[in-house]
Design a protein around this nucleic acid. Structure first.
Length: 269
DNA sequence: ATGGCAAGTGTGACTTGA
């Protein structure tokens, strides 16, 4: 079972690039972020024609997540638990049943968190957009604990907007005051990992220089000035099934690319 | 150190992203 995460940066602008990649990579499931579309406007037919079931959790203009799956999607839920006042569309879950195992899939688009405000000491304030990011990560940790307690193959995958380590950025020093790389951000990410999740890509590859995002600006792609912020976190039961994990880097060099590329795992499920 | 781009909304010039 091949499962991918892909921040597509707008479904309308990415139909061609996304369907081209689907036809060639043949994933069973794609967790999509930043669909930037309401549910009614999502171009389902392009994917249903290729045999994918489509579940969306969209909003107008920004954010929005979706799941495309060749397997039936069961028990679909929308929204990250823990704050009924949060109206941003950043979380969707569903279960797929493979030949040997059922797998719970959580697709997420974690808040960016910039700009960060600092006090006079240079300490980031837990306020505004950065406060929302850290609060969202606390809710993610709570959902992660509940998921682990189920003791089933499950994953939380998506655009985490977290650079975990210096080796995950071409120029780590340029991110030091950024919400994606502040110590508080990285600590919150580690707290979740340390509950017992396997970060799929790092479990298979320890070398630096592997990225999943290159900014559209300042020739970031041509200079390979990238960061690795799209992650798949696997429960122990899912990690036991993992056979492969890769980043489809070359997708970034095509026509009308997203600024992110797909990252995928295969599970013996 | 700075500025650089793309997408959505909606048709001009913003907001947001990372």
């Amino acid at each position: 079972m091949k499962i991918a995460t892909f921040n597509i940066n707008g479904i309308k602008a990415r139909i061609g690039a996304l369907t081209d990649w689907l036809d060639e990579a043949q994933p069973d499931v794609v967790l999509c972020q930043e669909i930037k579309s309401v549910d009614e406007a999502f171009p389902r037919e392009a994917f249903e024609d290729r045999g994918y079931n489509v579940e969306t959790h969209g909003q107008k203009g920004f954010n929005g997540v979706a799941i495309l799956s060749k397997l039936p999607l069961e028990d679909v839920t929308r929204g990250l638990p823990g704050d009924d006042s949060d109206e941003q569309a950043r979380w969707i879950e569903a279960t797929v049943v493979g030949e040997t195992h059922a797998v719970r899939l959580c697709g997420l688009y974690l808040p960016n968190g910039n700009p960060v405000e600092f006090d006079a000491d240079g300490t980031p304030l837990r306020d505004g957009k950065y406060g929302y990011k850290l609060d969202w990560m606390d809710r993610l940790e709570a959902r992660a604990r509940a998921l682990l307690a189920e003791e089933m193959p499950a994953m939380m995958a998506g655009d985490y907007n977290v650079i975990p380590q210096p080796e995950d950025a071409a120029k780590p020093q340029s991110w030091e005051k950024d919400a994606l790389y502040l110590p508080q951000t990285r600590a919150a990410f580690r707290r979740i990992l340390n509950l017992g999740f396997t970060e799929a890509f790092r479990a298979r590859e320890q070398a630096p220089g592997h990225y999943s995002f290159w900014d559209y600006q300042a020739s970031a792609w041509n200079r390979n000035n990238g960061i690795r912020i799209d992650h798949l976190l696997l429960t122990p039961q899912a990690a036991d099934l993992m056979t492969e994990c890769r980043i489809d880097k070359e997708v970034r060099g095509r026509d009308k690319p997203s600024d992110h590329v797909p990252v995928w795992v295969t599970l013996a499920a």
